[in-house]
Simulated scan of single mutants.
Amino acid sequence: MTIDWRPTADIETLRDRARLIAEVRAFFAERGVWEVETPVLGHGGSTDLHLVSLSCEATTPAGRERLWLQTSPEFHMKRLLAAGSGPIFQVARSFRDGEVGGRHNLEFSMLEWYRPGLDLDGLITETDALIRRVLSSDPGSLRRRRYRELFRESLELDPFHEPLEALRRLATERGGLDMAAACRDDCLDLLISLVIEPRLGRGGIDVVVDYPASQAALARRHRDPEDGEWVASRFEVYLDGLELANGYDELTDAEEQRARFKEDNAARRVEGLPEVEADERLLVALEAGMPAGSGVALGLDRLLQLALDKDRVAEVMAFSTPRA
């Protein structure tokens, strides 16, 4: 058997990667945002229904323990915020099981930063500036797109009020899957990924806002001025049909966060998925007091893929998982 030992990316690309990551660090240094490092292994994992955390058994001072490979550095960085760090960023190794393909790798680089005191509009502006700093060409104008309007334009329906049975039929038809028992969010996720996302970020940077409140994750919620519906105070950034970043007006209420962790694990039980230990240290940090502000996670490999005009994220990584 021939074993391919060579890097996934060519050496010149890896040099370009290093140069662009240096630009990222310079961007934050100019803004007084300091770099931190947090653990790859933690005592809590992500309870998110759509993420699959990896874990391992390790010998620690407490004996044999189960530790989780972090799906992002979010929980540890929020503990630093609660301790008074001020604005921080990190280029972090992150892990998500089952995420394989042209846009995914089990292990990847996440660029994550937090801005105490900055509102979501301010963070959108800063995220746009960072993306433009890294890209080699002008991506076009920044456009804010409301989640509901995208569904109305592309599918002629209101995602908040369309009857669930109608959504299931449409998702089954468009996705070629049996969605007869799917929940509303699963139907919406399928439709947006197949019908709407491929069109986003064409000729400009699209920022999608006002997601359903059920998709708030670790973000606050607010009322939609259109009709008073609760919506998530978060955004996602798209360029060339590729999702690049996910930003939140960060939830700081410990009790609300604890309730959401419980809801996630309850949903996991319904789906027959294993429960994930909630990060108790994060909850205690929130109780101690995390300052209000906003934060964003950006897929650094994806941004570098676009900046260096590559077809797959593996082409900007030294060794993707198949060659690791």
Rank of each mutant, 00 (worst) to 15 (best):
G272H: 13
R174P: 10
P291N: 07
W230Q: 14
P163G: 11
D178L: 09
T47M: 03
T127D: 04
E226P: 09
R66E: 10
E280W: 01
E57I: 07
R17K: 13
S193C: 02
T8V: 03
L308W: 05
A245K: 04
A292K: 02
D10R: 11
G299N: 03
E156W: 08
A180T: 13
A29L: 14
D249P: 15
Y248L: 08
R169W: 08
V296G: 04
G42W: 00
R103L: 15
P212M: 13
S53F: 00
E37W: 03
A254M: 04
T125R: 14
L155W: 01
L283H: 00
R234M: 01
L20G: 11
E250S: 05
G101A: 04
P291H: 03
A171R: 10
G98I: 06
R143C: 00
A245R: 06
V36A: 02
S141T: 15
E243G: 14
G84L: 12
A62V: 07
N246I: 01
D121T: 13
W230F: 12
A288C: 09
V33S: 08
E57Y: 06
D264H: 12
A129S: 12
L218H: 07
G140V: 09
Y114K: 12
E243K: 08
R143T: 06
A171C: 11
I3Q: 11
R25C: 10
R146K: 08
L194N: 00
V52D: 13
A129W: 02
Y238I: 06
S154F: 07
R6F: 12
G204V: 11
A324K: 08
Y211H: 04
P225Q: 09
E65L: 07
R302Q: 13
V100I: 13
V24T: 15
M77W: 03
A297N: 10
I88V: 14
R258C: 01
V313T: 10
D128H: 08
V209A: 04
N246G: 04
K78T: 07
E229Q: 15
E197H: 02
P212Q: 14
E315T: 10
S214I: 02
F319N: 01
V316T: 11
L244F: 06
G241Y: 08
R145S: 09
V134D: 12
A314I: 04
G32V: 12
V134I: 15
A180S: 13
E126P: 11
P159Q: 11
R66F: 00
S233D: 15
A307Q: 04
T321L: 13
D189K: 00
P159E: 07
L194H: 00
V270S: 05
E35W: 05
E277F: 05
L282R: 05
T13W: 06
A216T: 10
D97F: 07
S214G: 15
L304P: 12
P291Q: 01
P87R: 07
T47Q: 03
D48I: 02
E287W: 00
E255F: 03
E35G: 10
R17T: 14
R220C: 15
A288L: 10
A9W: 09
I131F: 07
T252W: 00
L304E: 08
G63R: 00
R269I: 10
S233M: 11
L67N: 06
V237L: 11
